[in-house]
Nucleic acid binder design. Structure first.
Lengths: 203, 203
DNA sequence: CAACCAATCTTAACATTGTCAAGATGCATC
DNA sequence: GATGCATCTTGACAATGTTAAGATTGGTTG
């Protein structure tokens, strides 16, 4: 890999952002497990210890990238949310948007849901921003299942999860490998997503 | 961790199996990313280089565990397949079984779909055994969408993927963390799975 | 029974990694 | 111009994945 991001000799300027960018670059080339703090530092033109002034550990760098990814996802979901009025249309559009985000930002999706998840989901910032992403889906479905006073909302929750599961499952299978090898490349993702989310999504 | 599996002084007997067992034990305690070849060797009462006579690399140990997991999943799916005659009932039972496998064998599921997937899915044995797991689902859905001669089976494929996605998505969200923190522990998984797979699964 | 052989295990070493402590450097502020 | 704080470096540490070369074993063959 080429050296990137070096500006001065000593001080850097925006090392934090540079590290995150080169982290993504490296994961793209070598995979999540091939990602190395030392090499990211090397590529950023900085000593192995430098990143520790911006991130507490290797995992926290990944967490920061994950947060960035969730913010992008949230932004996409928000746009969809505001674009549609009809809850049903909105719901399928949200699902499509979710899958498309995963496909168009594989590396982010990897880091968000794959890399070291046991540790990742203990990070509060990650949890908060992930919760926000979920809220768009919840609000949309809430309109379809208005909460009655003494109703336990298990039906509501189940619907939220069904929708989330379909989107997340398809995204995971597509991005994480199985689908690529198992179902080969014959499938048109666009058509597929349409089919999955167009037909009575609620059931 | 305690020392386990040591029998003789030099020769071991079934080191291969011992390594796989202790690998699972270690992942259970320290997570996938905390898993270490050297410590697995240590726990198994063997030198750091010994595992290399049974697995080409650390990743191939994980691949072997993944294969074992898929075989267990296949076995479970096969039983369900033979237990039900009606394709619709069979379908929802297969989905339920898939999720239940993930929940009851979290560590296997982790290794099968999480750990180092970029590398894992290049292993042929993994691909084959994963394909077999998929076949139960495909055969069941095929009965519901009989193949007409010149029909492109995009509808069939989409249905397969919808079902797989729902099951895999729910399993992933449940096992991998997000659901635990985001939706808290208020949900009864059994009820949930019933709800998701009982209502017109095909749509 | 003895000699051999292939499988299995060990010891020793290598480069690399994540991380930390101590010190150097530069920017801003008084 | 001196001071203080954030930022970066150097140097070190233990741990890891992996390999090469040699020791040990049990089974097979003469």
């Amino acid at each position: 890999m080429a050296e990137t991001g070096r500006t001065d000799r000593y001080h850097h300027g925006d090392l934090r952002q540079t590290l995150m960018n080169n982290c993504l670059k490296m994961i793209e080339e070598k995979g999540v497990s091939g990602f190395t703090l030392r090499e990211v530092a090397r590529i950023s033109g900085v000593s192995p210890a430098a990143p520790y002034h911006h991130f507490k550990s290797k995992t926290e760098l990944l967490a920061a990238v994950a947060v960035m990814g969730f913010e992008m996802l949230n932004e996409a979901q928000r746009k969809i949310y505001e674009q549609y009025d009809d809850p049903v249309l909105r719901l399928s559009a949200l699902g499509k948007s979710y899958v498309m985000f995963a496909v168009n930002h594989k590396i982010y999706f990897h880091v968000m849901f794959r890399a070291d998840s046991e540790v990742l989901w203990k990070n509060r910032q990650v949890m908060n921003v992930a919760n926000q992403a979920l809220s768009y889906l919840e609000n949309t479905i809430r309109e379809l299942f208005p909460k009655t006073a003494a109703d336990d909302d298990s039906h509501f929750r189940a619907t939220v999860l069904t929708c989330w599961s379909k989107a997340h499952g398809l995204a995971s299978l597509w991005v994480d490998g199985p689908l690529k090898s198992v179902e080969s490349g014959k499938l048109d993702l666009n058509k597929l997503v349409d089919l999955i989310f167009s037909r009575s999504v609620l059931h």
